[in-house]
């Protein structure tokens, strides 16, 4: 076990004060589902464990005009049951559906999922999809960090030790087609082998007028798939076209990761999962 002091501040300013002085020596616990593994294995080499799970400033899901705000302390269960997210960020809501298990969803937070910077974090593709910006605070002020810049490498977040993610600001999407799917080794309680989020709009002629796409568990840090989006925009989706776009997506992934032993599966699976997610766009 680890040797540390447990601190639970009453409000965000208190937490930021504490981190300003002790950030280097502090680990942050929100839901705890990741940090507790380190606590138990004795890998946590910090003097303090700062519990931010009860900070009201980090809670809540709201729609403020064109800003859909999701507090970093919102649990996956809250995302799962949020009607506001179901109508404005369906992919994000769906990403909570198969996230670990109910017991984990009840305490794990979206902020924790992002800060942990696991390439398999299930909320990350949907946040990318919605051009999410993380509102990050330290004692001296607030910074807006786009999702693409939240991780520097696998399991390494770009946050400084003094910072806390306060909330995510998403671009809401209504009236279009949105989906999130993941592939795991079993149907529940599985780490993503691969996940994908998509949002599509078609115009009156059946052409794709808007497409956003994000991959999970495929690249070490979140990456834009702009080339594939551009390829499909303005075109009428057909089986063949989607298949070709899926192939492009797989190539784009391999450009980033290089060929690994897992590529044998992931290359076709990316193409396949893309087809499965986008197929409802054909002919409808």
């Amino acid at each position: 076990m680890a040797d540390f002091k447990y601190i639970r501040p009453d409000n965000l300013p208190e937490a930021l004060d504490f981190l300003w002085d002790n950030g280097q020596d502090t680990a942050i616990i929100a839901g705890g589902t990741d940090v507790m593994i380190d606590v138990k294995s004795g890998k946590l080499d910090k003097k303090y464990l700062l519990d931010i799970s009860r900070l009201d400033e980090l809670k809540g899901i709201e729609l403020n005009g064109r800003d859909l705000c999701v507090g970093s302390g919102v649990t996956l269960s809250e995302i799962y049951t949020s009607a506001l997210l179901a109508s404005n960020a369906l992919a994000l809501q769906k990403s909570a559906v198969n996230f670990a298990a109910r017991q984990i969803r009840n305490i794990a937070t979206i902020g924790g999922n992002v800060a942990h910077s696991s390439p398999c974090g299930d909320t990350v593709p949907s946040l990318l999809l919605h051009d999410a910006i993380a509102l990050v605070a330290d004692k001296k002020g607030i910074q807006h960090i786009p999702m693409e810049q939240m991780a520097t490498s696998a399991y390494m977040s770009s946050l400084t030790p003094q910072q806390i993610i306060v909330k995510f600001i998403l671009t809401p999407y209504q009236d279009g087609y949105a989906d999130f799917q993941k592939i795991g080794r079993r149907k529940e309680l599985a780490i993503s082998r691969m996940s994908m989020a998509a949002f599509v709009k078609k115009d009156s002629t059946g052409r794709i007028s808007f497409l956003k796409l994000a991959l999970g568990a495929c690249t070490p840090v979140p990456c834009s798939m702009g080339a594939v989006e551009a390829f499909l925009t303005g075109k009428v989706p057909t089986r063949e076209l989607l298949w070709e776009a899926g192939g492009l997506l797989a190539e784009r992934m391999i450009e980033i990761t290089g060929n690994r032993s897992s590529t044998i599966y992931k290359k076709p699976a990316v193409q396949g999962l893309f087809m499965r997610i986008l197929f409802p766009m054909v002919g409808s």
């Binding site: 592939i183 149907k187 599966y265 699976a269 193409q271 396949g272 999962l273 499965r276």
Partner: peptide
């Protein structure tokens, strides 16, 4: 069998 991803149900 999902022929696109290899998932079996």
């Amino acid at each position: 069998v999902d022929v696109l991803t290899g998932q079996v149900s």
